[in-house]
């Protein structure tokens, strides 16, 4: 997360400490852009699963608009939503789940309605080469495999539950991981035989794991909404960034990372 910075005076400093996020304050370069101009500094809070693609999009956006500095902070969507609602100054919020976005909108912190800019599909992550020859969710119970799921409290866990219900599979996982990366790590370390994770995560770890798509994943598609925040000090640039994410250029980066179009 080098280069990622966060403005000071976060009201949620304690929340940050609890969650173990990294983030350092620096508002010395912050200067309000003239109205209507795409310029100045832009703070984007984005879900952890967007780390690779938004880092790339941020660079591309800076190239397209000289004078703009994009500061990205990645964390779990719920933690970011908490920070925003506790008064953390930021311009754009990109969430990995509609529920966390809803929390921000309900608190009245959105500037306009959020839009879905990408979808992420659940796949079965198995060790590279798929040693247990997993073809679908039913194999997971039949083989007596050790499976890691995300905890229900985090988005990947909620969608996994929906998919398992849709498939009528009663699966007892060995662990309910705190986030999707932790679930994937258990597969990479060989501690579990399979995990339900996003396609983008498997794509990012292609050298260690294979992703098995399954039909019920249609019920397990997670939508990524994005919104400009009400307290933005740089509304024109924030709106331009959201547009850029939804443009062909932005979509190209997201697709390469394994996301699907909305």
């Amino acid at each position: 997360m080098s280069g990622v910075r966060l403005r000071t005076a976060l009201a949620a400093v304690t929340a940050l400490a609890v969650l173990g996020l990294s983030g350092c304050g620096d508002d010395s370069t912050g200067r309000p852009a003239a109205a209507g101009r795409i310029d100045g500094q832009l703070t984007v809070l984005a879900a952890a699963s967007l780390t690779e693609s938004f880092t790339r999009i941020g660079q591309d956006f800076e190239t397209a608009h000289p004078g703009v500095r994009v500061i990205l902070t990645f964390a779990g969507s719920s933690a970011l939503a908490n920070q925003i609602n506790e008064g953390a100054p930021a311009d754009v919020f990109a969430s990995a789940a509609p529920a966390n976005m809803a929390a921000v909108i309900e608190a009245g912190n959105g500037d306009g309605d959020p839009v879905t800019f990408a979808r992420n599909q659940l796949v079965i992550a198995v060790p590279e080469g798929n040693p247990d020859a997993v073809t679908g969710l039913h194999d997971l119970t039949r083989l007596g495999a050790k499976v890691a799921l995300c905890a229900e409290q985090v988005p990947c866990g909620a969608v996994a539950c929906r998919a398992l219900d849709a498939a009528g599979v009663a699966l007892t996982p060995v662990t309910l991981e705190r986030d999707v990366k932790a679930a994937l790590a258990k597969v990479r370390l060989g501690e579990v035989d399979a995990a339900l994770v996003y396609r983008t995560d498997v794509r990012a770890a292609a050298e260690d794991v294979d992703g098995i798509e399954f039909p019920e994943s249609a019920e397990a598609i997670n939508e990524y909404p994005i919104v400009v925040l009400k307290d933005t000090a740089n509304r024109p640039t924030a709106r331009a960034f959201v547009e850029y994410v939804r443009s062909d250029a932005g979509r190209g980066v997201l697709t390469a990372a394994g996301f699907q179009a909305p």
């Binding site: 609890v18 969650l19 779990g76 719920s78 933690a79 908490n82 890691a148 905890a151 409290q153 985090v154 996982p173 060995v174 662990t175 309910l176 991981e177 705190r178 932790a182 258990k186």
Partner: peptide, 25 residues
């Protein structure tokens, strides 16, 4: 949470429960 994971009644201790509760509530 890293070594033992999280499963209620088996490995979900109070601090783990606190962390996950923080996600939603």
């Amino acid at each position: 949470i890293t070594f033992a994971g999280n499963y209620p009644g088996r490995t979900q201790t109070m601090p783990v429960a606190v962390y996950l509760a923080l996600e939603t509530d």
